[in-house]
Write a protein that binds this DNA or RNA. Structure first.
Lengths: 340, 340
DNA sequence: AGGGAATGTGTGCACGTGCACACACGCGAA
DNA sequence: TTCGCGTGTGTGCACGTGCACACATTCCCT
């Protein structure tokens, strides 16, 4: 009867103990399943737990164990690429699957503003998570620095951080881009261009580099159309610009499936048929790829696998393994559909 | 020097106190900013905090305060509608904004399997969150039951739970569907159909009900094509089926923008032009709406606002307010673009 | 018969924090 | 002097848990 709106007091081990007529220690042994407990005591305690509706207080357990059985999943995107990039969602689910299998709770933390940065840093410092998975960290990121300072087990997805010692899981953007461009050239195209997105990010720059390598001596910079984002609209406008400048283009490597979808629309506007007049390939193998008309030939990005491997790396580090053994590059098979 | 892989011990108030030559109590007063502290002590303590790199241990604070300054955001979707439904991401960001403004941490919990359900229930029971925002709860949901049992402050987004006493924030699906259907009829269409998705969920059923009401005596059940999901593919296939059965259809209300996008593709296949031959309207005003050709006329769903209002409701309840005053229905203005 | 396992149970301490209380000091008024 | 008050500081307890230790009982082996 302290104050009416306050929720009722939670049952503790002590309540269970008095209810079952034993001591706290015995109750603890039953809950954690170790040590010797007589059958009669066990039964009495289990009944008491049910009766008083006992659930362990995780905060207290975390405090004494120095372990929270939770791992943070940090998404640090300026506004909300979170919404547009289907990969992030897939990475998240992959990580959740792996953590769930080891009975860890995933805690998803969105960093959307500077205010968030500070709060998340406090949260991490507070010992609420045993480790973190970091997606798309920036250079000189305050969150990254906090993680280093706490020497919190961490795994980066997508790109290694500045320091070479941390664990990361990624794909070979450059090699994959080179491979699919080569495949596109093998279909007999002679003037192959690229809609190169997000050149300020490693993934974007690497994909362009791979494209350039594949073309070798045939590379012609006027066939590269840079656009700011991995978005449908960027693809639409980029393709329009490319067509206006180079009407004879007969092949296009789009930096992502969303960009490719926009490019297909621009080609349709211009009356070009795909793949007859122009071959188009994308990158990601996201939902866009099968939703397009014709469906896209693209590079499969194993997003769920990235999340899963990152989670496994963090769990290994929580168990005391060294991070640097975990620098993993996953395979990116090419999926050939109808667009080239 | 206990064990090399273990991370170094965190600094505590005690370390700060000895470093600054004062007692724990004084340090606490500086950190929490109440009580009398001399200027000299304050300076010494602030310097000591910087020097030893002190950050409060949130677990300990949670334990003693019975407050975690965190709110759970629970997404309970069978497989991963999470990825496909852009509304969920927007709701999430809206909630994060509101919580962030009150200096609360949002903790996003994904429930993807039965195993997750159990673990999340334990997590909630553990006192790691002061309240929860629940998106798309199911009937007889175990998570919902846990929340009730703990009498944890909660707000449901989308639809009220079985019990009428809990807080929820939603939109008037039926009224909005009725309004946009009426607008579509006012453009002079005579045979207006609907691609009705997800009839097993309240939102889907309510949108169909609104459509039916708008047509009144003119309602013809053969013009309703039910499809399972709010997806592009469902829209594509649904529209094909509807066209095959009713070639004279000249207006379509699609249950979501993704469905409408699929319908546009089917109409294009069939050689119908939009909006000349057939008027199409959608629902959600998501990214699909502006990405389509022509851009969609649709019902604006204030997803970010839903998240924000839900968060505010939870925070009010944490402060002791009664939940039942928070049963909020947000406005859903119609956005008229080119597709009808 | 006596010593030592094996089995079963209770108690004290620690985790790091907030808060209530006690205490110390200087000063002015009764 | 003695009391009260404002200011500044130290200490003990509580939060709920896990774990190490101490203790109690039984049983077997020498």
């Amino acid at each position: 009867m302290t104050s009416p709106p306050s929720r009722r007091r939670r049952a503790t081990v002590h309540d269970v103990a008095t209810e079952a007529g034993v001591s706290r220690g015995t109750v603890g042994r039953v809950i954690n399943g170790d040590g010797y407990v007589s059958a009669s005591a066990r039964e009495a305690i289990e009944a008491a737990i049910k009766k008083v509706g006992y659930v362990p207080n995780t905060a207290a357990r975390t405090l004494v164990m120095q372990r929270s059985q939770a791992v943070g999943f940090i998404v640090h995107e300026p506004h909300s690429l979170f919404l547009e990039d289907p990969n992030i969602g897939e990475i998240l689910l992959g990580a959740n699957t792996a953590l769930s299998a080891s009975d860890y709770q995933m805690v998803c933390l969105i960093v959307d503003s500077d205010r968030d940065t500070e709060r998340v840093a406090r949260y991490l410092s507070g010992g609420f998570v045993d480790g973190v998975i970091i997606v798309s960290a920036r250079q000189d990121d305050p969150i990254t620095r906090v993680v280093e300072r706490l020497s919190l087990p961490a795994a980066f997805v997508g790109h290694p951080p500045d320091l070479g010692t941390a664990a990361f899981v990624g794909i070979d953007n450059r090699g994959s881009a080179r491979t699919i461009t080569t495949r596109l050239l093998e279909t007999g195209r002679t003037r192959v261009g690229m809609i190169a997105a997000a050149l300020d990010r490693d993934s974007g720059a690497d994909r362009l580099a791979g494209f350039t390598e594949a073309l070798g001596a045939r590379f012609d910079p006027t066939l590269v159309e840079p656009v700011p984002l991995y978005s449908y609209r960027a693809g639409l406008e980029g393709m329009r610009a490319l067509l206006a400048r180079e009407p004879l283009v007969d092949g296009v490597f789009a930096a992502s499936d969303a960009v490719a979808a926009g490019a297909l629309e621009a080609l349709r506007e211009a009356g070009r048929s795909v793949p007859e007049d122009v071959g188009v390939v994308g990158f990601d193998d996201s939902a866009w790829a099968t939703r397009c008309q014709p469906p896209l030939s693209t590079v499969h990005q194993p997003a769920a696998g990235l999340g899963q491997r990152a989670a496994e790396s963090v769990l290994r580090q929580v168990d005391g393994a060294e991070p640097e053994v975990d620098q993993i590059v996953l395979e990116t098979p090419i999926v050939w559909r109808g667009s080239a």
